[in-house]
Amino acid sequence: MNVFRLLGDVSHLVAIIILFLKIFRSKSCAGISGKSQVLFALVFTTRYLDLFTSFISIYNTVMKVVFLVLSYATVYLIYLRFRSSYDSESDTFRVEFLLVPVAGLSFLENYDFTPIEILWTFSIYLESVAILPQLFMITKTGEAESITTHYLFFLGLYRALYLANWVWRYHTEGFFDQIAVVSGVVQTIFYCDFFYLYVTKVLKGNSKLTLP
């Protein structure tokens, strides 16, 4: 555990909590892509199957359970509890265009051809593109509430910090997880345009993000 990894995990947790509380407190999921949230729930489900097969640490187990519970709770808020506020007309990204290639790739390029390992690989690949429905929705509507942009900022920052963690681990322990690193770079690239808008617009005091 190094500082980049810890800050990355904290950033990830902060992002998920921001989104959950935003929906819970405002009793509305307006502007939020339910499809992205279902994909993230799928990411955690397929990645954390090792909760049943291997124990790494109390920290690891607790974080996995928290991520799983919060991701499903968020999906519940969007599709059941506050369904009337869900903007399905703007959430039109075709997720099968992500799921099919990602599933195919996880069978082709993995560390071990076993169900649990293929599902882990699937989760890594899927995570790198899971935010696309949300970004697509913002592009389509041309705006996002600032609280939504804070969520996206911390979610993007998390994987960027993991990149620093992987550089650190490579130099200190020779650790190199090619699948995670390549996917992590791809994932972070998707956020770059957003990071630019976040810094130049939201942090300059605009109440919401409007696209030029």
Binding site: M63, Y111, D112, T114, E117, N165
Partner: peptide
Amino acid sequence: ADESVDHDEL
């Protein structure tokens, strides 16, 4: 596979 790959990251 005789040995499972260890993923210690989240």
